[in-house]
Design a protein around this nucleic acid. Sequence first.
DNA 1: ATATAACAGTTATGCCTTATAACGGATTTG
DNA 2: CAAATCCGTTATAAGGCATAACTGTTATAT
Lengths: 168, 168
Amino acid sequence: MANRADPAVKAGSGHEPSRDATLRSFTGYSMKRAFHAIQADLKDVLEPFGLRMLTFSALVVIVDNPGLRQAELADALVIERPNMVLIVDQLVEAGLISRAPAEGDRRAYALRPTEEGCALYQRATAAVRAHDERMTKNLDEEKRQLLVSALGLIEAVQWEEDDNGERS
Amino acid sequence: MANRADPAVKAGSGHEPSRDATLRSFTGYSMKRAFHAIQADLKDVLEPFGLRMLTFSALVVIVDNPGLRQAELADALVIERPNMVLIVDQLVEAGLISRAPAEGDRRAYALRPTEEGCALYQRATAAVRAHDERMTKNLDEEKRQLLVSALGLIEAVQWEEDDNGERS
DNA sequence: ATATAACAGTTATGCCTTATAACGGATTTG
DNA sequence: CAAATCCGTTATAAGGCATAACTGTTATAT
């Protein structure tokens, strides 16, 4: 479960500072490394609740938006609809949400949290918040907000309809 | 607070602001979304070169550190050794690197870029740099540096040997 | 009204990434 | 020399992500 590695500290020959200096100049690479660390930690945090990153995310959105449909949930999480099925299945089987027929549309489902789902939501969200604060404990509040802001700006680039295409 | 274009905004009723407001309060969630955007864009950028994110990363490290071994490469990229095999195989088959026996150790390989590998490194790196600048074009240089710095601080948390029991 | 298109959820499928156990060969260590 | 360790490898498994295609249902267009 807990896997620790220490590639940074090498007590051997040489004093290679970092072999990935070029890659470090890319924002995306640093983000991959940081996200990898978060992902590993969050996995351990959610395991006691029987949740994974995606099932936790789905549960949160459902609790915050009771009655929404699977397609809306998939859109909110940027997950393809086919991949949403198993996630919702898992939450239903765990008794955390209900998949009731949507009124006025016999092909859609209305997703709602159960009482257990709401209870687990509270506990899991608190644990994840503690995890998040632990991961960002070396950032002061100003830096943390700037980080989130920067991440949002990066994500927003993909929504821009630029005709600029210089590849292929 | 900051609201950006939502992908799932469809004509009709309502003006649902964002269904993932709670998740947005977590640093890790914003990072996942931003990294997902970068990953998707980078995939298209590298495809013309016959490279994936991992093969590109490996090629860069090999060019920057000619002669290193697979285990060192795996450590540099935080990849398990078994998963390194196929990546190196692919680079060898593409004629971008050579897997020569390491001198002084008959079980290890010394990885070196071929001339083609160096040439592709130049072109691919330039393309990835353009990609990176495009993804961060909405950040001024100060913000970008702060972003990278913050990502490094987050990644560094996992190397700290905390005896602090957060839960369970 | 009826044919057609669009939509909701599902199934099946495949690729990529990541992680672990275990093996043979080589090297180091006691 | 024997045991432990290391290098690269194979096999295997789980998870995330993407696409095509199918069923029923709803909306639309003539």
